[in-house]
Design a protein around this nucleic acid. Structure first.
Lengths: 340, 340
DNA sequence: TTTCAACACGAAAACGTTTTCGGTAACCCA
DNA sequence: TGGGTTACCGAAAACGTTTTCGTGTTGAAA
């Protein structure tokens, strides 16, 4: 087992100083060609690679991006990571991933953990609990220390930082419009509890679309679901007890459960009931019938977030306080769960 | 913007030496209670946290695990990461994730990148290309440098290291047996190309099950698919041209495509055709009909891998060359795509 | 012969820790 | 009063780099 070789060892072996070795490897003109080549040959032979930690300490740059997200077993977040990793890779950065598990405390711990030198900046999406508590002091503190943060999807208006979002309200509005133009009159909404920022915005879009078409709002067919694992019963109830002809769901899981429950009751999709879901994930593509969705391009969001962060990291004039909010466009992918 | 405070700054401010500050914060008995409390109060006030990079350099430990996987937009890998992160978190480690995109070169680059001090060890699953080339010198080199590697799922027999796998052959054997015991006579196999280690093993299990029941092997109903994105045509052909009554697919994507194609042709599932898939992912749970699967507990694999790696990292007597291969049990989750 | 530039290289500081070792008082006991 | 202990603190090395500055040697010009 041959341990990694250091500058010091090379210096000793070749009977020169550490400085000489370092300069030789950097092709400094200060060093004679003789010694330069000698050192380079030796370094190559022993497969010398500079130690990243030492470099980080010296340069006060880790070339590492911290990602903190609620969970990873979730197609959307996985695609975002994928996008981040792509541009990080291109620009020579690594990514270190932490999961908050939707917990405020874990989010704080992870953030503080990584803020002590491990990363140059953060890309994050807030945990549900954080959004509920509306406590963002941990973010503010990190920002005050001079570490840039880019937030995506679940962002906080209270925090001044770069952000990457989609226009949740507009996209929801358009999706519901789509159903209305199909001729649907009684469109149900299946959404999350209100403190999840995106859920709230999508709900607003739904309400606005109905209002703009003079369709009265019926609270009975607006379902706010907290526990995603046990939602089938309430959804079934929604379908049986109201003769709805359209469903707008804020995620594909709600949608697929709704479709299953409808099929059980022999409701024909899309003839009698149209379904549109937010988030174009793996489920929508492969369910039967396939589901019309608002596609939320996670890869693109990740790429954009990484670009924004790295730009801020690498721009010299640090204090440009003009934070940007980038809106990624969505598009409606129509599939079998709607008529047109 | 107040930058992070260091020992040196505290020392200067309080007019003591750096050593005194360091010892005070560690509650060393060498320091008088007076100064100790004074220092601690000051440190707390300025929210002092030791710099991780400096610690890493000093201790030659980063408390960071490198994960290198083919891709993250894949439910199985996401669950594995989730498992790794759980125990890493418990034991005070961070994880840094790199994606090889199934490319040998990227795998090598990532490995070398992280091996230069950034991580203490690795958990990885090989890229397809690496498995095809059978070139593992990059792994061997890292191991030679004294960094432990734990491989999971797509492992290499040629490399001596700790491994976490499932018994692919046995699980496939049992799955096919299940179909046979249902009374299926003509069972098709939809698998990957052979160089993917797990695909090969699952194929072997399929063959063994047929042999053990004296069912003759029909090469026409064994489909080896390279391009997962355009597999529907060949699968459709398989279903129309052979009157098969069972399908064993080595992943859920193949299975769901097969089901869709069968339904198109009005083949009744499971009455006329049973389907079992490997990998219990999100698709199997929500497709219509839901799919009977061999569940491959990714979280458990991840947890196990992380435990093995951390144990090796933290055990003093470094050179215990007895590498272990841990086999995670699978179980068959029967759903609507099979009769019993 | 003196002077000066060019050349080649090394010493040392710096990044932020931890830890070993020494040192200086004050105190105790004989 | 002398020797030894104890309590408290600081200097310095170490981790592996990079970079600034200094220094010695050479050769050529004056």
């Amino acid at each position: 087992m041959k341990r990694k070789v250091t500058l010091k060892q090379i210096a000793k072996e070749l009977d020169v100083s550490i400085s000489t070795v370092s300069k030789s490897l950097k092709n400094s003109s200060e060093i004679s060609e003789d010694t330069r080549l000698k050192v380079q040959a030796f370094a190559k032979l022993y497969n010398y690679k500079p130690n990243n930690i030492a470099l980080s300490l010296k340069n006060k740059k880790t070339k590492t991006i911290g990602i903190i997200i609620p969970e990873i077993v979730h197609h959307f977040f996985a695609t975002v990571i994928s996008g981040i990793e792509q541009v990080a890779n291109e620009k020579g950065y690594n990514v270190i991933v932490c999961l908050s598990d939707e917990s405020f405390d874990k989010e704080v711990i992870n953030l503080e953990m990584l803020a002590n030198g491990s990363t140059d900046g953060f890309i994050m999406s807030l945990s549900k609990e954080t959004q509920q508590k509306k406590d963002f002091h941990h973010l503010q503190e990190v920002i005050n220390q001079g570490m840039p943060i880019v937030m995506f999807d679940r962002v906080a208006n209270e925090i001044l930082a770069d952000k990457v979002i989609i226009d949740d309200l507009l996209a929801a509005y358009q999706a519901v419009n789509y159903l209305i133009e199909e001729g649907r009159k009684k469109i149900a909404l299946i959404t999350t509890v209100d403190y999840v920022s995106v859920g709230k915005l999508r709900t607003e879009g739904y309400l606005k679309a109905l209002k703009d078409h003079n369709i009265s709002i019926d609270e009975k067919i607006i379902l706010k679901i907290e526990d995603i694992d046990n939602c089938s019963d309430v959804i079934q109830k929604l379908i049986i007890e109201n003769d709805i002809d359209g469903i707008f769901a804020v995620n594909e899981l709600f949608a697929v459960v709704a479709i299953k429950e409808a099929l059980k009751k022999a409701v024909k999709i899309p003839e009698e009931l149209s379904v549109i879901a937010f988030t174009d994930g793996i489920i929508s593509k492969f369910s039967t019938p396939t589901i019309t969705t608002v596609s939320q391009n996670g890869v693109k969001m990740g790429r954009k977030a990484a670009e924004m962060l790295i730009e801020r990291l690498e721009t010299e004039d640090e204090e440009d306080e003009r934070y940007r909010t980038e809106v990624i466009e969505t598009n409606l992918i129509s599939r079998e769960s709607t008529k047109t």
